[in-house]
Nucleic acid binder design. Structure first.
Length: 406
DNA sequence: CACGCGTGGGT
DNA sequence: TACCCAAGCGT
């Protein structure tokens, strides 16, 4: 039995919605006062007093799904430049949208983003619906995002419950029920606090509080406008919320990637199936990835006959639910070589136009060198592959890079 | 409802 | 290094 990290359980049995002994009720006003002083300036945010732009709010909310502010910023700016309006986005070819999204992850968001833009233009005259229900009906917009856009862009009374808000509210009320079962209670508690005069500011204030004060670890309770009202804080247990179910262990899958370099410099690529992992994105051809795949079987999946050379090490990449260790094989082929069915040779200068996800950039960089890619917003191509001993049937744990003699 | 779905920074 | 986690959604 591995020494699993047993998470301490909150000891508090205080009933939910209990108000502090002093009797002062939890009030949005305290939070809004704090927000007016400490709000973050973010590229997609209207300045105080200015009206929010629904297109910007929507675009940012989609990008921010499970994605950090730092990662989103450069993508957001670039999207606005390339697609200044929802009409421009709707009219763009999907490859261009996927290319602009490449590196940001969760690529179904990009597909849904494009579909949503088309729907807004075709069915709503280019205007986003201004109600939660109307927004919720659009692709890629779920409960959280509908609430967030309704509140932030249209000042509708709505609960925008994201991970930040879950953390703040479970602490505030010491909701010990584990997520996601506690979602209904969190939503109810949040909605009860929304001030009718400033729903948008309230939504953003809650998120700012969660992001800067009520953080997952070591929350800065001393700076919190709700400190004296927070049930978890009173018990000294803020950090124990929200309670979550234990996570599953992440398996390692292995497979081969084939980097074919034609004499003119072109690289062999293909497009992945539209749905599923990295759906619709570009990649060098490769084998399926599986837990029991071993390097010695790599050649079986080669896309064409060539003098394959297996490169040292593996490219290691962590996805949400598994880790990939890709063995990379490299071959040079003659100038006239034609691409196999369903594949294409992309000229070296056009590589940057391809919608290559980060893992595929890592694989290409492993075979071709880091200099292949111009700097991208996310700094893709940064990671160096780990090194691993050769074709062991039961590969030893991957070792971090061994120094290469210069 | 549980699962599939990326990536990079923080600790 | 090995986790954790971030403004979730669709099925």
């Amino acid at each position: 039995m591995p020494a699993t990290q047993t998470r301490a359980e909150p000891s508090l049995e205080e009933p939910r919605n209990a108000e502090p002994a002093g009797g002062k009720p939890i009030s949005a006003a305290d939070l809004l006062t704090w927000y007016d002083r400490h709000r973050r300036a973010l590229p997609w945010r209207a300045r105080p007093g200015e009206a929010a732009d629904p297109y910007r709010v929507w675009l940012s909310e989609i990008m921010l799904q499970q994605t950090t502010v730092m990662a989103v910023k450069p993508y957001f700016e670039r999207f606005l430049t390339r697609f200044p309006t929802v009409e421009a986005l709707a009219a763009a070819p999907s490859e261009e949208v996927m290319n602009a999204w490449a590196g940001l992850g969760y690529y179904s968001r990009a597909r849904n983003l494009h579909a949503c833009a088309k729907a807004v233009v075709a069915e709503h005259g280019g205007r986003f619906p201004d109600t939660e229900d109307g927004l919720r009906a659009l692709p890629g917009i779920g409960a959280y995002t509908a609430g967030a856009i309704a509140a932030i862009a249209f000042d509708r009374v709505a609960a925008a419950v994201d991970g930040n808000v879950e953390r703040v509210m479970t602490r505030l009320h010491a909701i010990a029920e584990p997520m996601p079962k506690a979602k209904a209670a969190v939503r109810e508690a949040t909605l009860a606090l929304v001030p009718p005069d400033r729903p948008g500011d309230f939504a953003q204030a809650l998120m700012d509080l969660g992001a800067t004060i009520c953080t997952p670890k070591r929350p800065a309770c001393a700076l919190c406008p709700w400190m004296s009202l927070c049930a978890a804080r009173r018990a000294g247990e803020a950090e124990l919320y929200p309670v979550k179910a234990p996570k599953k262990t992440r398996e390692t899958r292995r497979g081969a990637a084939f980097v074919v370099e034609r004499a003119d410099g072109a690289i062999l690529l293909r497009t992945r199936a539209p749905e599923g992992l990295l759906g619709g994105m570009a990649e060098p051809p490769g084998s399926a990835w599986s837990v029991d795949w071993v390097p010695s079987q790599a050649i079986l999946d080669a896309p064409l006959d060539a003098r394959w050379k297996r490169l040292d090490g593996v490219v290691r990449h962590v996805f949400t639910h598994f880790t990939l260790e890709a063995s990379v094989l490299h071959a040079r082929v003659a100038a006239g070589t034609a691409a196999p069915d369903g594949m294409r040779f992309t000229p070296r200068e056009a590589i940057s136009q391809e919608p290559l996800p980060s893992v595929m950039k890592k694989i290409l960089a492993h075979a071709l060198g880091e200099a292949l890619f111009a700097p991208t917003p996310a700094g893709a191509g940064r990671g160096r592959a780990s090194k691993e001993p050769g074709d062991g049937e039961a590969p030893a744990p991957v070792r971090k890079r061994r120094g290469r003699a210069a």
